[in-house]
Amino acid sequence: MAFQKITESDSLYNDLDKMSLREILEDINKEDQKVAIAVNKEIPQIEKLVAAIVERMKKGGRIFYLGAGTSGRLGVLDASEIPPTYGMPNTLVIGLIAGGDTALRNPVEAAEDDLEKGWKELEAYHINQNDTVIGIAASGTTPYVIGALRNARARGILTASVSCNPDSPMANEADIAIEPIVGPEFVTGSTRMKSGTAQKMVLNMITTSTMIKLGRVKGNRMVNMQLTNQKLVDRGTRMIMEELSLDYEQAKHLLLLHGSVKEAIDSFHREWRLNQ
């Protein structure tokens, strides 16, 4: 029996072009409310994956995302946000998209259909058994991703998949399958909608919880964020003011001197202990 794609099934709504604007927006929102529920059901699988990732990253491992189209863009987006948010090198969470950087803005014909391309791109990074490969595909049928997972798993590398169809071919190639089943899209087959939202939520959960467990958050604050603009300098300054009971200028001086909230606070405490 052929694999059935819920993501390609007919919308629950008809005559979209005849709806009022308010009806369109309300029905899209009604469908979006199903996404968080679907993701919630996958928390045990996400937990299993993150626990394994943290163990590996403590040994120098990395996360590799692979996807095509919207899924690939979401992986690249999530990876690109880790260095500024948590002060991590951009070599630890890496997003690969079928067709390369060109595909971030424009479709690249047949890029996702090459079964071996994904693995060849991973080999260029000297991938090893401390690493984790996460395939992202709403359909769960993308050859670029399936081939990469198959090759990685055969070599003892941890693999995971994020798709919105149950028991997909991609999931069958993964050690840990995450499958938020969000149902048919509002516009039939437009997986940039609910499926994309579900994938974005899952990727946020994976990297955010990983960074917390790796000590990149203190309390509820991004104490390792990069100071790339005045807003972030101000935010970091106020974190230090609150933590150390300093005035604004003292806190800002300390922040700019040490480059991060964490380093500023740690340095302050070290100096205080030396003077006791």
Rank of each mutant, 00 (worst) to 15 (best):
residue 248 Y to Q: 14
residue 84 P to I: 04
residue 149 L to H: 08
residue 32 D to L: 00
residue 249 E to W: 12
residue 222 M to Y: 07
residue 117 K to Y: 07
residue 135 G to R: 02
residue 33 Q to H: 15
residue 151 N to G: 11
residue 213 K to E: 05
residue 88 M to R: 14
residue 225 M to N: 08
residue 26 E to I: 12
residue 227 L to M: 04
residue 198 A to F: 00
residue 85 T to A: 01
residue 2 A to L: 10
residue 34 K to A: 00
residue 88 M to V: 14
residue 275 N to K: 15
residue 85 T to R: 02
residue 228 T to R: 01
residue 91 T to L: 03
residue 208 T to Q: 10
residue 153 R to T: 12
residue 95 G to C: 02
residue 124 A to P: 04
residue 91 T to K: 09
residue 241 M to F: 03
residue 171 A to T: 11
residue 121 E to D: 11
residue 6 I to Y: 09
residue 40 N to K: 08
residue 111 A to F: 07
residue 217 V to F: 05
residue 132 T to V: 11
residue 53 I to P: 11
residue 107 P to T: 02
residue 46 I to W: 03
residue 177 A to V: 10
residue 53 I to H: 12
residue 272 W to K: 15
residue 150 R to T: 13
residue 165 N to M: 01
residue 147 G to S: 14
residue 137 A to H: 09
residue 66 L to F: 05
residue 4 Q to T: 10
residue 260 S to H: 08
residue 62 R to V: 03
residue 206 I to L: 11
residue 37 I to C: 07
residue 79 A to P: 06
residue 224 N to T: 14
residue 183 G to V: 00
residue 66 L to C: 06
residue 131 D to R: 06
residue 166 P to N: 06
residue 173 E to P: 13
residue 16 L to F: 07
residue 26 E to R: 15
residue 145 V to A: 00
residue 17 D to H: 14
residue 266 D to C: 11
residue 212 I to T: 10
residue 84 P to C: 05
residue 81 E to R: 13
residue 100 G to V: 12
residue 216 R to L: 03
residue 85 T to K: 03
residue 88 M to K: 14
residue 84 P to H: 09
residue 221 R to S: 08
residue 147 G to I: 14
residue 236 G to S: 03
residue 74 L to I: 10
residue 155 R to M: 10
residue 163 S to R: 02
residue 113 D to C: 01
residue 270 R to H: 13
residue 112 E to A: 07
residue 243 E to G: 10
residue 256 L to H: 03
residue 89 P to Q: 06
residue 150 R to N: 11
residue 41 K to N: 09
residue 208 T to V: 14
residue 200 K to Q: 03
residue 246 L to K: 06
residue 229 N to K: 08
residue 142 T to E: 03
residue 163 S to N: 06
residue 168 S to R: 07
residue 263 E to N: 15
residue 192 R to A: 00
residue 264 A to S: 15
residue 224 N to Y: 15
residue 261 V to Y: 08
residue 108 V to W: 12
residue 239 M to L: 12
residue 247 D to E: 05
residue 172 N to C: 13
residue 117 K to W: 08
residue 117 K to N: 13
residue 234 D to F: 06
residue 243 E to H: 12
residue 197 T to Y: 06
residue 57 M to N: 08
residue 259 G to R: 07
residue 211 M to W: 01
residue 165 N to G: 06
residue 268 F to R: 13
residue 145 V to G: 00
residue 86 Y to P: 02
residue 142 T to R: 08
residue 1 M to K: 13
residue 166 P to C: 01
residue 54 V to D: 12
residue 31 E to S: 14
residue 246 L to W: 01
residue 81 E to N: 12
residue 120 K to G: 11
residue 112 E to N: 09
residue 147 G to N: 15
residue 238 R to D: 02
residue 163 S to E: 00
residue 63 I to V: 09
residue 90 N to W: 09
residue 254 L to P: 04
residue 46 I to E: 01
residue 83 P to R: 09
residue 46 I to Y: 03
residue 132 T to A: 02
residue 10 D to R: 13
residue 53 I to K: 13
residue 185 E to R: 08
residue 171 A to P: 10
residue 193 M to A: 11
residue 39 V to R: 02
residue 75 G to K: 13
residue 110 A to L: 13
residue 112 E to L: 05
residue 6 I to H: 09
residue 248 Y to V: 09
residue 261 V to E: 04
residue 256 L to A: 01
residue 131 D to W: 04
residue 165 N to K: 06
